[in-house]
Amino acid sequence: MLFTIFNSLLAVLLTYSMGMLYYGFYRIGNARIHRRVGPPLWQNVIDNIKLFAKREAPGHGIMFHLGPVIMTAGTITSMLFVPFLKDSAWLQGFSSYGNLILLIYLMVVGPLGNALAVGVSGVPFGVMGVTRGLTRLIGLEVPFFLSVALLMSGSGTISISEIMMAQDSFSNWNMMAHPAAFIVSLFSFVGMMGASPFDVVGAPVEVYSGPQAEFGGKYLGFLAAQRVMFSMVKLILWVDLFLGGATNVFILMAKSFALFFFYFIVGAAFPRFKTEQAVDFMLKLPLIIGIGAVLVRFWSL
C-alpha cells in the first residue's frame, strides 16, 4: 500500500511540474504568435505561488470552501486511474482497479463538485459558465465516446493498460489502426482541453470569466493548479489510447508535448463559438465520421 501512495504522490508531482512546463511554453508560444516577447518560462508557477501568498480569500460558507477541494480531488483521482507508463511498476496509480469508462465519468466529478461552490457563491455569471460547460460537454462527450467505443470493441477490452499493451509497434498504434477514431477523438480533445473554438466556459468577454468569477486568493490557486494537472491527465490518456503509451517518462513527455503542440496551434488560431454552435459542430462533422467508421467496421465484418 505504501508503494502505491508514494507512486501517486510521484504522479501528482510529475503532472504538476509537467503541466507548468507545458503551460509555460504555451504562454511563450502564444506571445511569439502575438509578435511579443512573452513571460519567463516558470511564470505560471510564480502566479500560482503568488495566489497562495495572498493574505485573504473571499468565502461564501462551507460549500464554497469545499468546491475547489472537490475539484482538485476529482482531478487527482482521475489522474490515479490513468496508467502513465506501459510496462513498469512505476506511476501506475490505481489503474489496475479502474478502466476507461470509469475514467470518463471520473473526469466529470470534479467540475460538478466545483459547480456546487459556484452556485452557492450566487454569482449569476458563474452559473452561466457552468451551464455552458455542461451543454458543451454533450457535444464533446458523444463523439469521444464513439471513438473510444470503436477502440474498445476493436481491442476487445475496456481497461486502458490493456489497450496500451496492444499497441506494441508503430504500425499498430491506434492512431494508425483506427485513424477515423483518432480524428474524431482529436476534435473532442481540443474541446475538452478548452482550446479556442470551444472555450465558451470561462469567456471573460461574455460571461465575466465564468465559474472562476468569485474565486480569489488560495481558492484560485487551487483551481489554477488543478486546471494544469487536469490537462496533463487528458494528454496522458490520449497518449495511452492512441499513441502507443510510453515506456519511460521521457517518451511520455515527448509524445504528450506533440499532442499539446497540436492543441496550442488550434487554440491560437480561432475565435470563439457560441455554446450551441460548438455543440452543433461537434454533433455534425465528428459524429458523422464516427458513424461512418462504425458502419465500415460492422458491415465489413
Partner: peptide, 15 residues
C-alpha cells in the same frame, strides 16, 4: 508587452 514583467489582465476584482 507588460507580460514580460509578469503583468497579466484579470477579469474580476477577486482575481
Amino acid at each position: 508587452d507588460a507580460e514580460r514583467f509578469g503583468v497579466r489582465g484579470a477579469a474580476t476584482p477577486r482575481q
